[in-house]
């Protein structure tokens, strides 16, 4: 049994079958990559896992519990954190504040009325946030407003915010899409480091084959909403079906 079990998931958008009978099993403490050509349904699948979309049929079990019918914040509180295709952070807040919010959410749950609480007395939260900034190599940006940061830094912060929650499962949707080469390499290095240093399960959607093969323990290839194969990276490379799906698209 994997930590995440997706069984028989279907999702239609009008006449378009975005997901057709998707089965997926992500084992604990592995990096599971989901690859496939544009429009294969990768983001749709991810959205079904975090409560943004509800599948028409099928089941999604996380850690022995169904996530279907739960609100995004409830699913997050179960232990799933998500990184978006374009970094979603709090643009009007400082880097430090961005980092404190997930830690508050972890400690206090979905809502707490600490209206006259004092930030200065929240030592535990401040320390945890500062430690995570050091881990993310962003301590020098502590008081910066995030709106003025580079895409790579925003991504790094977003990943840090997700990690600060100590999630059981981290989902990443094309974390290097639209990034400059240097930012891409930075992000890959960061992910490798996370994989080595932390007990965490990662499911990643990625286009860049270099990224996929250097990170993944297991790969699922999605084409037209249906899993083509699921296998170890070395077997995926030579698989003729995968080549066809990819080369057919990129040629």
């Amino acid at each position: 049994m994997g930590i995440l079990e997706v069984k028989g998931v279907n999702k239609r958008f009008g006449g378009l079958q975005a997901l057709g009978d998707v089965n997926l099993s992500v084992r604990e403490n592995t990096v599971h990559a989901i690859i496939g050509p544009n429009g294969a349904g990768k983001s749709t699948l991810l959205n079904c896992l975090v409560g943004k979309l509800i599948p028409d049929t099928g089941s999604v079990m996380f850690d022995g519990q169904s996530v279907l019918g739960r609100q995004p914040h409830e699913i997050n509180q179960m232990g799933i954190s998500r990184v978006f295709q374009t970094p979603e952070i709090f643009g009007d807040l400082t880097v430090m504040e961005n980092m404190m919010i997930p830690i508050f959410a972890k400690r206090d749950g979905a809502f707490r009325m600490h209206a006259v609480g004092n930030m200065m007395s929240e030592k535990g939260i401040v320390e945890a946030a500062e430690k995570m900034l050091v881990d993310m190599n962003m301590a020098d940006k502590r008081d910066m407003h995030t709106a003025s940061m580079s895409r790579g830094d925003k991504r790094r912060l977003e990943i840090g915010m997700c990690l600060a929650q100590e999630p059981k499962l981290l989902l990443l949707d094309e974390p290097t899409a639209g990034m400059a080469r240097a930012d891409t390499n930075n992000t890959i290095d960061l992910l490798k480091q996370i994989k080595e240093e932390r007990d965490i399960t990662i499911a990643i959607i990625e286009h860049d084959m270099h990224v996929v093969f250097s990170l993944a323990d297991r790969i699922t290839v999605l084409a037209q909403g249906t899993p083509l194969v699921e296998d170890d990276p070395q077997n995926i490379k030579g698989n003729p079906k995968v080549r066809e799906a990819y080369l057919g698209e990129t040629a």
């Binding site: 609100q71 914040h73 997050n76 709090f90 959410a105």
Partner: peptide, 8 residues
């Protein structure tokens, strides 16, 4: 981001 950070 708030919702996907577990906050309502």
């Amino acid at each position: 981001r708030m919702r996907y950070t577990g906050l309502n």
